[in-house]
Design a protein around this nucleic acid. Structure first.
Length: 533
RNA sequence: GCAGGCGUGGUCUAGUCUGGUAUGACUAGGGGUUUCCAACCCCUCAACCUGGGUUCAAAUCCCGGCGCCUGCACCA
């Protein structure tokens, strides 16, 4: 199954198509159709079951537009921004920081200076002035000049900003994780390959917060999970998660935990384990925030496609927001509780005695440990403060630290594409999508063998009872029964139920299983309860 | 963003060189027939990416735009 065929299937069967087709299309944007929306819903349901319901992540649904300050703090305005130069003669375009030695460490201004007058590596002409291209979509918030705002380039920042709030919801206990499903936007220079590189896409992200000295251990239930690893240094190998952690291939127990969970999730929705690997980023591939990162990749006709990134972000994000914003993002570090006697200046007395100079004195002792008979320099004079100008106080507190975070971040659109491609089967006689029932768009096809003798009416009655009990059923009475099976197979409907004359006599139906084509004769009730998820 | 290739019903496609009624198949819809895996028969819907130019006449030739594919560059 190659890329073009998946795209054709997607259009034909209402899964997805390019958006704004009537106006010539707009690269990087897709619309999902009736079947595609159902598949997405199913994948999201499984994901929520894994992360929100079973793993207890706190779910959030954050705003899409954010203020400029947020993205200054997060680093996206600086780091997400490419400095470009192009050549007027040969038309080639380059990243400025790639042309200058050490350019990746330079400031913008230094880079602009260094690049000026540089020759084009392609043709030797002098390059244009440096311009910058930011991958975020910008907008104005409010009337008039308005505030600069940006569409979020990742859902993660919402969770980081909500950290103090979520922490209270979790009754101030660490570790905990926030989870979010939502759209993100990146103004890609050259989006291509349909659902694989989009300008608007859906992410499913978890931010797992923990104290630096108390990283969650790998649960024993995950230790023996087999996983394909491609470390940045060293050989590709298949081993257990527990072993990879013990031997240091994976450096962090929480990263290991999330690699295992990501694999469990992906195989649960129908990705074959042999088609799945986790590849570690090399140092130069790493994002600005990340200290260790593994990409979960699925093997497709287009090569290995990244569908999930598991990144150890350290305290990069929380400390950025803690330092830039007015909120406290730190937490007390357990075990560092302390109680000590400190001297504090008696401001009332200082004021009375020193009048106008009191302010300068207070300024001078602001950042020093005060104790009796301390000598300080004030306006060129040495002043000694005796015990009468201060008093003793008991100070309680803990060392405050920014929690660390490990982040698994899934791309829904890519996952759906990979699933379609890999679950497409063709045995020469028929073509079908072999998804597990959890992610099939429908549970059941209800089909009367013929549309006469009341078979269709009976079938519609059964359809209604199926829908009433929560079975996602699809009704089809057009064409031969074989054609209807074929149609159902092509969108991956898991079971088919056929109503014939015998149904009218004894209330039994034929139930067909999609992958095996096996049929069995069951009572309507038994069939429906078998089909129910 | 650059270079090359491409753009015809829902899908696949003929026609483009050499300008003149747009081909066929599949799918889909309606009807008939039919007792379980794309059966058959009749009918029907449905397309030249877009804007300009050349011409009596443009799907076809020329120019621009948009989109798709490939390569380069980019891709937290």
């Amino acid at each position: 199954m190659d890329f073009q065929k998946v795209i054709a299937l997607a259009t034909r069967r209402g899964i997805f198509q390019p958006a704004f087709d009537a106006y010539g299309g707009l690269a990087g944007f897709m619309d999902y159709g009736p079947v595609g929306v159902k598949m997405r819903r199913r994948i999201l349901e499984v994901w929520r079951k894994h992360y929100v319901i079973n793993a207890g992540c706190l779910e959030l649904d954050g705003a899409l537009v954010g203020p400029e300050a947020l993205f200054q703090a997060s680093g996206h305005l600086g780091e997400f921004d490419d400095a470009l130069v192009d050549c007027a003669d040969c038309g080639k375009q380059f990243r400025a920081d790639h042309l200058i030695k050490g350019g990746e460490e330079m400031s913008r201004d230094a880079l602009a200076e260094a690049i000026s007058g540089t020759a084009c590596p392609g043709c030797g002409s002098i390059l244009s002035e440096m311009s910058s291209f930011n991958l975020m979509f910008s907008t104005k918030v409010g009337a008039g000049k308005g505030l600069s705002g940006y569409l979020r380039p990742e859902t993660a920042q919402s969770i980081f900003l909500a950290f103090p709030w979520l922490l209270r919801q979790n009754r101030s206990k660490l570790p905990f994780a926030g989870a979010q499903i939502g759209r993100s936007f990146r103004n890609e220079i050259s989006p291509r390959q349909g659902p694989l590189r989009m300008r608007e896409f859906t992410q499913m992200e978890v931010e797992h917060f923990f104290l630096p000295n108390d990283e969650p251990k790998l649960p024993t239930s995950l230790e023996s999970i087999e996983i394909n690893l491609v470390p940045a240094k060293g050989k590709k190998n298949s081993t257990t998660i527990g072993n990879a952690l013990r031997t240091g291939i994976i450096g962090s127990s929480l990263v290991a935990t999330h690699l295992a969970r990501a694999q469990n999730f992906l195989t649960g929705i129908g990705v074959a384990k042999d088609n799945l690997r986790f590849r570690q980023h090399g140092a130069n591939e790493m994002a600005h925030y990340s200290s260790d990162c593994w990409d979960g990749e699925i093997n497709t006709s287009l090569g290995w496609v990244e569908v999930v990134g598991v990144a150890h972000r350290g305290d990069y994000d929380l400390s950025a927001h803690g330092n830039f914003s007015s909120k406290e993002f730190r937490v007390p570090l357990p075990g560092t509780e302390r109680e000590r006697e400190v001297w504090v200046p008696n401001i009332g007395k200082l004021g009375k005695e020193f009048k106008g100079e009191a302010k300068s004195i207070l300024e001078a002792i602001k950042d020093v440990d005060v104790k009796p008979d301390i000598s300080i320099e004030v306006n060129g004079n040495s002043v000694t403060l005796s015990e009468e100008y201060m008093s003793k106080k008991t100070e309680r507190g803990s060392e405050m630290v920014f929690p660390y975070v490990v982040e698994p971040s899934f791309g829904l659109d890519r996952i759906l594409y990979c699933l379609l491609e890999s679950s497409w089967k063709n045995d020469g006689e028929r073509e079908w999508i072999s998804l597990p029932q959890e992610t099939s768009p429908y549970d059941l096809l209800v089909a009367p063998l013929m549309t006469k003798d009341g078979l269709d009416g009976k079938a519609q009655g059964i359809l209604q009872s199926a829908l009433d009990m929560g079975v996602d059923a699809y009704y089809d009475e057009a064409g031969s029964i074989g054609r209807r099976y074929a149609r159902a197979d092509e969108i991956g409907i898991f079971f088919s139920m056929t109503i014939d004359h015998q149904t009218l006599e004894d209330g039994t139906v034929t139930l067909r299983e999609r992958d095996s084509k096996n049929q069995s004769r069951l009572s309507i009730e038994d069939a429906l309860s078998k089909v129910r998820r």
